[in-house]
């Protein structure tokens, strides 16, 4: 990142995001005749905020692996790995140092996006809670995808192979899961049709609904984009950021905590596991 590479990346990233936000704003403004309408202005604020967070999330998902996929394997390639291993530098410091370096750069990219996010606050319609949850999700995602890259880098000898595998993992998490969600949703609608047309007992329907809600919830809570959208929907429709219920056929309620909480716990836990394995791999003496 020396010789100004970081400046170029930041400049290009901000230019592209500004362009996107500008186009969206112009599109909304030209389609809305009632500029003075405060509800419309708030919608513009929400849309701008959603776009900025969405772009940042995609950026984090696909820049983080690039920053860490070569972290350990490149040390092997440039033949500095042995030199580091014979120093007093603990494996823990090496791995955490690489992780801190990647997350610091991602944090910088998120921080430089603040002025664009603050445009949304200018229009209104975005609560401070939303901003904080979005930032937390971005940080946890940065942590997770950096940890995935780091783990694969610790396993592989070649940076090229490590980068390819890290990106395959990122693509599966970001795009593979929505496909699963789509399949699950069609399966759920098919099954609910079956439930109402069949002679299921009330208890059987309750069990099936519980299973379907649970599967749907897990699928949403392990995908970054789905989590953001579901948490936002929950905020708009239920006016809460933490806990709500979903109606069941028997008149009861299915309780759920906000998907972002499950997302943070799930990926936070696995990131720690990935980092722990990476440290073990780096500590390993050649056999």
């Amino acid at each position: 990142m020396r010789k100004g590479k970081a400046y170029i990346i930041i400049t290009v990233y901000l230019l592209l995001m500004s362009l996107l936000v500008g186009l969206v704003y112009l599109g909304l403004a030209s389609s809305a005749n009632n500029v003075g309408n405060s509800g419309m202005v708030q919608t513009v604020g929400k849309v701008v905020f959603g776009i900025v967070v969405g772009v940042e999330m995609m950026m984090v998902c696909f820049v983080a692996p690039a920053l860490t996929a070569g972290a350990i394997s490149s040390e092997r390639e440039r033949q500095t790995y042995d030199l580091l291993q014979t120093t007093l530098l603990p494996a823990r410091s090496l791995v955490l140092g690489k992780l801190t370096s990647a997350i610091s750069f991602l944090l910088l990219l998120l921080v430089v996006g603040f002025p664009l996010q603050s445009l949304a606050s200018l229009f209104g319609g975005v609560a401070i809670g939303e901003v904080l949850v979005a930032f937390l999700l971005l940080i946890v995602t940065a942590f997770t995808f950096s940890a995935i890259g780091l783990l694969i880098s610790s396993l592989m000898r070649s940076t090229l192979a490590s980068t390819v595998i890290s990106y395959v993992a990122a693509i599966i998490v970001v795009f593979g899961e929505p496909t699963l969600i789509g399949i699950a949703l069609s399966f759920m609608s098919m099954l609910s049709g079956l439930m109402y047309s069949s002679n299921f007992t009330a208890f059987q329907v309750q069990i099936l609904e519980t299973v379907l809600y649970s599967v749907g919830y897990v699928l949403v809570a392990i995908n970054p984009l789905a989590t953001i959208i579901a948490s936002e929907v929950m905020l708009v429709e239920k006016q809460t950021l933490f806990y709500t219920t979903l109606p069941m056929t028997n008149g009861g309620n299915f309780p759920i905590v906000a998907p972002w909480i499950a997302y943070v716990l799930f990926y936070g836990f696995f990131s720690l596991i990935f980092i722990w394995i990476s440290i073990r791999l780096v500590r390993r003496v050649g056999k």
Binding site: R78, Q79, T80, Y81, D82, L83
Partner: peptide
């Protein structure tokens, strides 16, 4: 320790 290669950081 000095190995038989020179590990270099760009």
């Amino acid at each position: 320790y000095m190995p038989d290669f020179f590990g270099v950081y760009n």
